[in-house]
Design a protein around this nucleic acid. Structure first.
Length: 481
DNA sequence: CGGTGAAGCCATAAGGCTTCACCGGTGCGTTATT
């Protein structure tokens, strides 16, 4: 059967989107693949279709529980029953049963942490996989080094002899991220499908201010006068709350979103943003992955993103429908200091290395460092990873060079602020590509006028929009209680 | 590191000034405790 026939039979499409066919063919040939495909261009099809050709299960490593759940739900809607998400949502009994029957599933979603568990390893070693997929593979680079070190171990546990091909998927990756993906997944000269990172319909703005309050004033003014939907990225949880409060007072339908919130609230707010009952979201960088919304018109950075990869990822959430959109980077003097501080704040230091060694020499578990309040859980995991990889002196060396890298990454974002050359050109160049065409109203340095891109709200626009059904029901319920 | 805001200081009182404490992201899994 031809690939197109399979595509039609299982997915109902008549033609592949750019990149899909190449990527699938390589994998069927047994080759490793890194595919950078724009969001919404059918990344998941790249592993789902091979799943129907191969006889053996496809293993998909995924960074977020919510992401796994979405994908599983979606596949079940399409009548695929042989799909499972192996994660902490399962109770111990379900978990045991799932592991036991793992070989019977067609698609297995799993977190890196779960993947590394002994019992899972044992089972995986006893069975054959047809394909290993690492979804949102930039997480290896983005999170592996200082946050979720298990991301760096994926390659170690999956890289057995006679392993199936590995497919790494992402929307954007810098040269460095690409290198990290290839290295840490132990890939074998992978085929790379890389689309242009440029998104001509996203117009790039920047605004420089003296003080931080002025940025807020500008946002309040700008957001009340222009059309959403939009995302405002800021650095701290508190600020998401305070800024969204002020926007609410100005009549903007908005909500805060950050990692400290109740998961159900987060889900609810995300859903409201997607279905249009919220115009704006004020969020930390917790917001974004797995948010499939086509018509985001604006992305505003109230504070500096911590590196270019994040910046690209975050502005990339605008204009997925291809319509003109605006990404505005705000800067006030000294912002880079905060970005640097936050970047290296929760990070092991030399004293932690020494302490770790002394625990070991006393035959005590280094994990006690956490319970004794010496170190955060996150920093400990990072420390523990490197202590198991390198000699202590090298660990210190490594930690300091990683800190330096983080500060340098902030400086690279500062280049966007400080230089007066085309922002698009800088961005694209940073990703190791060259810019083919410059769109009209390209960026701040090419004479961008915001009002050419974003509809200015008419004064007649009532501040409170028509209530949708969800809100109506909520109000009814409040009325009765 | 740096911004912010509350408290303390002065002493005609009031408001202006200094000092100082506080705060600052991303998620998995597991488990002890309300």
């Amino acid at each position: 059967m031809k690939l197109e026939d399979i595509l039609n039979k299982y997915f109902g499409y008549s033609a592949f989107r750019p990149g899909q066919r190449e990527v699938i063919e390589k994998v069927l040939d047994g080759k490793d693949v890194i595919a950078l495909l724009p969001t919404g261009m059918g990344k998941s099809l790249c592993y789902q279709l091979p799943g129907y050709i191969f006889d053996k299960p496809v293993l998909i490593v995924s960074p977020l529980l919510s992401l796994m759940q979405d994908q599983v739900d979606q596949m079940k809607q399409f009548k695929e029953k042989r799909v499972v998400a192996l994660n902490s949502f399962l109770n111990p009994m379900q978990k045991r049963a799932s592991i036991q029957n793992l070989h019977d599933y067609r698609f297995i979603f799993i977190s890196p942490e779960m993947l590394l568990q002994e019992q899972v390893q044992q089972k995986l070693n006893s069975m054959e996989l047809s394909l290993i997929v690492v979804d949102e593979a930039h997480c290896i680079s983005q999170w592996g080094f200082d946050f979720r070190p298990d991301y760096l171990r994926i390659g170690q546990v999956l890289g057995k002899p006679n392993r199936p091909p590995i497919m790494a998927l992402s929307a954007t990756a810098t040269q460095k991220v690409l290198g990290d993906i290839e290295a840490y997944l132990n890939m074998d000269s992978p085929y790379k499908f890389i689309h242009s990172v440029d998104r001509p319909n996203i117009h790039l703005g920047k605004m420089l201010f003296q003080g931080r309050e002025e940025k807020i004033e500008w946002i309040l003014d700008h957001v009340t006068k222009t059309a959403g939907p939009g995302i405002i990225y800021t650095q701290s949880r508190l600020k998401t709350e305070s800024l969204s409060q002020r926007l609410l007072q100005s009549g903007v339908t908005t909500a805060a979103y950050h990692g400290g919130m109740d998961p159900l609230d987060r889900q609810f707010i995300q859903q409201q943003f997607i279905d249009g009952s919220l115009d704006w979201i004020v969020a930390t960088n917790a917001f974004g992955m797995g948010v499939h919304k086509q018509n985001v018109r604006q992305v505003i950075h109230e504070s500096l993103p911590s590196n270019m990869a994040n910046y690209m990822q975050e502005i990339g959430r605008a204009g997925r429908d291809g319509e003109d959109s605006l990404a505005i980077l705000l800067y006030a003097e000294g912002d880079e200091e905060l970005a640097k501080f936050v970047g290296i704040d929760d990070y092991p230091v030399d004293a932690h290395v020494d302490s770790y060694i002394s625990y070991r020499s006393r035959n005590e578990l280094p994990t006690s460092m956490i319970h004794n309040g010496e170190i955060s859980e996150t920093a400990f995991r990072v420390l523990d990873y490197w202590m198991n990889q390198l000699q202590p002196a090298d660990v210190k060396q490594r930690l300091s060079s990683m800190k330096y890298e983080k500060m340098r990454a902030v400086e690279e974002v500062m280049d966007l602020i400080e230089t007066n050359t085309c922002m698009r050109e800088q961005l694209v160049h940073y990703f190791g590509q060259t810019l083919e065409n410059r769109p009209e109203d390209c960026c701040q340095c090419c004479g961008l006028q915001y009002e050419n891109i974003i509809r200015v709200r008419e004064i007649i626009d009532a501040p409170s929009k028509e209530l949708n059904w969800k809100r109506r029901i909520e109000q009814l319920l409040i009325g009765f209680s």
